[in-house]
Amino acid sequence: MTARTRRLARLTFANPASAIYLGLVGVAIAVATAVTLFAEDPGFVWVLPALCAFPLFMLVALIHADGQPAAWVFITELVVCVLVQSLALGTIVEASRGRLSPRRAGR
C-alpha cells in the first residue's frame, strides 16, 4: 500500500468525523434493509439513506430521471457517493486542523 493510498484511506475511514458519518449512513442502510425485508409495505424507507448522501446523490439520481434504476445500481451509486463525501469531510476536517498543507498534500 502506497503512502497516497494510506492517506486517502485515513481521510475516508479513520478520521473521527468521517467514521461518525459512515456509521450513521450504515445505520440508515441497515434500518432501510430491515424494514424492506420485514415490513408489509416498506414505503419510502430508502429515502433516509439517500438523504444522508444528498448533495452528491441528487446529481447522480438525475441521470435516472426517466425511470427507476435496478436496485444494485441504486445501492452502488449510494455507496460511491457516501465514500466520496466521507473523503471530502475528512479533507475538510484535516484542513481545518492545519494538518493538510499544500506542501504535504503532494506527497
Rank of each mutant, 00 (worst) to 15 (best):
E94P: 01
A30E: 07
G26P: 10
G26C: 03
Y21S: 02
L37G: 09
G90C: 03
A39L: 06
L78I: 02
Q68W: 06
G23L: 09
A50T: 01
L48K: 05
L89H: 02
G98I: 02
V25S: 05
D66E: 15
S18K: 02
P55L: 09
L78D: 00
V82K: 00
A70N: 07
L51R: 06
I20T: 15
T33S: 11
L22Y: 05
L83H: 00
V84Y: 04
M58T: 14
D66R: 15
M58P: 04
V31Y: 09
D66S: 14
V80Y: 08
V80N: 01
A71Y: 12
L56G: 08
L62G: 15
F57P: 00
T36A: 02
A65W: 13
A70L: 08
T91W: 09
H64T: 11
L37R: 09
V47N: 07
V84N: 05
L89M: 09
T76D: 03
A28P: 00
A30G: 06
N15I: 11
P49S: 09
V35N: 00
L37E: 11
C81N: 03
A30K: 08
T33I: 09
C81S: 09
G90M: 01
T33F: 07
Q68S: 12
V80G: 03
V25Y: 04
A88T: 10
V73I: 11
H64G: 12
H64W: 13
I92F: 13
A95N: 12
F13W: 05
P49T: 04
A32Q: 04
G90D: 00
V84C: 06
A39V: 08
T91V: 13
A95K: 10
A17Y: 12
P69H: 05
G90E: 04
C52Y: 05
G43A: 05
A50E: 06
P16Y: 07
L56C: 10
V80M: 08
A14M: 12
L62I: 15
A17K: 11
E40Y: 12
T36Q: 07
F54G: 08
P55E: 10
E94A: 10
T33G: 08
F44A: 14
A71W: 14
E77T: 04
R97W: 14
E94M: 07
R97E: 15
L37I: 13
A53F: 00
L87Y: 06
L59Q: 14
L87W: 03
I20E: 15
G90V: 01
A30R: 08
L56Q: 10
S86T: 01
N15G: 12
A19K: 12
P55D: 12
A53L: 02
D41M: 13
V45K: 01
A65H: 15
S86G: 02
V31E: 08
E94W: 05
I92V: 14
T91E: 14
F54M: 14
V60F: 13
A95R: 11
P49E: 06
E40D: 14
R97P: 07
I20H: 15
S86V: 00
I29H: 07
I63T: 11
P55F: 07
F38G: 07
V84K: 03
N15H: 13
N15D: 15
L24F: 11
L89T: 02
S86I: 01
F13V: 06
A34N: 10
W46Q: 04
P69Q: 08
L62H: 15
I75C: 03
D66L: 14
D41L: 12
D66A: 13
W46C: 02
I92T: 13
G26Q: 07
W46G: 05
